[in-house]
Simulated scan of single mutants.
Amino acid sequence: MSTDTSPDQSRYVAVQESEEFAGLRKALRGFVFPMTVAFFLWYSLYVILSAYARDFMAIKVIGHINVALIFGLLQFVTTFLIAWLYSRYANKRLDPIADKIRAELEGDK
């Protein structure tokens, strides 16, 4: 394998090492990691309650709808909420930086 870098590859490496790209990665991680931890904890709560708090999860709320069903459906709601929040976050914080980096990279041709 050759250690020489082509002109195109060296531009990409330069972008990867830039402050702007580091800021983009930091902004991405600033959303993804906390949201992943929050969702994992929320999902774990659902699983733990289902396994160890069966009486609580069996409480009827309306008709045959119990707490477990509501918690299960809220897992789906949470997933869509996180996707929507990420979309807004990306549009506001990530996309402008990524667009600028791409424009600079493509402008150097």
Rank of each mutant, 00 (worst) to 15 (best):
M1I: 15
S2Q: 03
S2L: 09
T3E: 13
D4I: 13
T5Q: 11
T5K: 10
S6A: 10
S6T: 15
Q9M: 13
Y12E: 15
Q16A: 15
E17G: 14
E17S: 15
S18N: 05
E20Q: 13
E20I: 10
A22Y: 09
G23Y: 06
G23H: 09
L28Q: 08
L28R: 12
R29A: 14
R29K: 15
R29V: 10
G30V: 02
G30H: 06
F31E: 08
P34F: 03
P34C: 03
M35L: 04
T36F: 15
A38C: 10
F39Y: 14
F40A: 15
W42S: 11
Y43E: 00
Y43R: 03
S44T: 11
S44P: 05
L45V: 12
L45S: 09
Y46K: 02
I48H: 07
L49T: 07
S50H: 03
S50V: 02
A51T: 09
A53K: 02
F56Y: 14
F56H: 02
M57W: 00
M57T: 01
M57N: 07
A58Y: 04
A58R: 02
I59P: 07
I59R: 14
K60V: 08
V61I: 11
G63M: 04
G63C: 05
H64L: 04
H64S: 14
H64T: 13
I65S: 08
A68P: 07
L69R: 06
L69P: 00
I70T: 07
I70S: 02
G72N: 09
L74D: 04
Q75I: 09
T78Q: 06
T79E: 05
F80T: 08
L81E: 03
L81W: 06
L81V: 08
A83I: 13
A83K: 04
W84H: 12
W84N: 02
W84V: 08
L85E: 09
L85I: 04
L85G: 06
S87Q: 02
S87I: 03
S87C: 01
A90V: 04
N91F: 12
K92A: 12
L94D: 07
D95W: 10
D95F: 07
A98F: 01
A98I: 00
K100Q: 15
I101G: 00
A103H: 04
A103N: 06
E104M: 01
L105N: 13
E106P: 04
G107D: 05
G107P: 07
